[in-house]
Design a protein around this nucleic acid. Structure first.
Lengths: 193, 193
DNA sequence: TTACTCGGTGAGTATGTACTCAGCGAATGG
DNA sequence: CCATTCGCTGAGTACATACTCACCGAGTAA
């Protein structure tokens, strides 16, 4: 890779890094592309040499982050098959990137179809992991017969709710940390025989 | 009331009616005040003679609707004390105004602090009703000892999740209708001894 | 050294939208 | 009947913001 290509790569990464930082702080919808460019330390126009439009940048940003997260989850499920331990670790992972997931939860319903579908598809893959673990638990007679998709919607829906209204639940600090135990308790209650 | 006052009143109602209709269809955030004025059949500037700014219109609109809804809930809880029947009726009420609540769920996390707090306050009053009924059930040994606020967040969080992502759950028709039974089943499972 | 390439620049364009205000004309009141 | 009030009009203003493009200059290749 020659000097030009290397510099181009660096610029691209500067844009994504800046976009991610702002996304964590306040989301993307109310962020001007000029603001991202400024934080990245590049000219406004440069952003559009790397991404055809704002949406493309958002898609790349979210896609990259969610794939990383999804890989973590996959790993996590290989390590243990106790749903309460998986859920515990899952909440820890969300907490570690709470700003990101809070912005995502808040803005997701307002994204354009394509982007929303893409993100929900990633979420559905994660659900699938949970589904299989619970299914196994039911087969082994550890958990009660239950409609697993509904149970998982309760779980993910509730987590989403805490995240999307984070600032109303806590003034500072982590919502997920605050309600960590309650989430696990109630969800295990749903699974209990 | 003379002719002028009457006309003024009518104009104001035209604005609110139009705003509500558009709110149900696509929410308020991505709606221009000019569009509301057009649907109301009045000049754009007229809107600002009745409301100092867009936010004031939204506040009035939502406040009126939520007070109506809250009164219905209060009534409902006087009629029966079976939580499953209350929940059943509650879901029916939401379903009857699903467009409204779907837009609200989608946009709520993005409203300015004041408006969001106002709406969450109304919601907290409704939670209070549910809380008391469940508490009574626990005292009477019908339900298990449980952290009621957490249980209710699971309930309202999940309903909110279905509503905010309605278009991803159903292409047409009602989400709440579709998941009506599951919501009740899982919530009763949470309460079960 | 020189001609060319190409990533970056930032002022400019197009568009959208909240809110204003000078003026109009019907209603009001004396 | 006339002067005044006042709700309404809609063109205009101010501002925000996504995206463009003519130009620049460092890097590249001969």
């Amino acid at each position: 890779m020659n000097k030009r290509q290397a510099q181009k790569q660096i610029t691209r990464e500067k844009i994504i890094t800046a976009a991610k930082q702002i996304f964590i702080e306040k989301g993307i919808i109310n962020t001007a592309t000029a603001q991202i460019a400024e934080l990245a330390g590049i000219a406004h126009g440069t952003l559009f040499l790397h991404f055809p439009n704002k949406d493309a940048l958002v898609i790349e940003l979210l896609d990259v982050e969610l794939i990383k997260f999804s890989d973590n989850i996959k790993q996590l499920i290989l390590e243990t098959s106790d749903i309460d331990k998986i859920l515990d670790q899952y909440l820890n992972l969300i907490q570690a990137e709470e700003g990101f997931f809070s912005s995502l939860a808040r803005e997701l319903p307002n994204y354009k179809d394509e982007l929303r579908r893409k993100i929900l598809f990633r979420e559905s893959l994660m659900r699938e992991h949970f589904h299989q673990v619970i299914e196994k638990g039911i087969e082994q007679n550890i958990y009660t017969q239950i409609d697993i998709p509904s149970a998982l919607t309760f779980l993910f829906g509730t987590i989403n709710y805490y995240l999307s209204l984070k600032s109303s639940f806590v003034h500072q600090g982590s919502v997920i940390e605050k309600f960590h135990e309650q989430i696990i308790d109630i969800f295990m209650k749903i699974l209990k025989k």
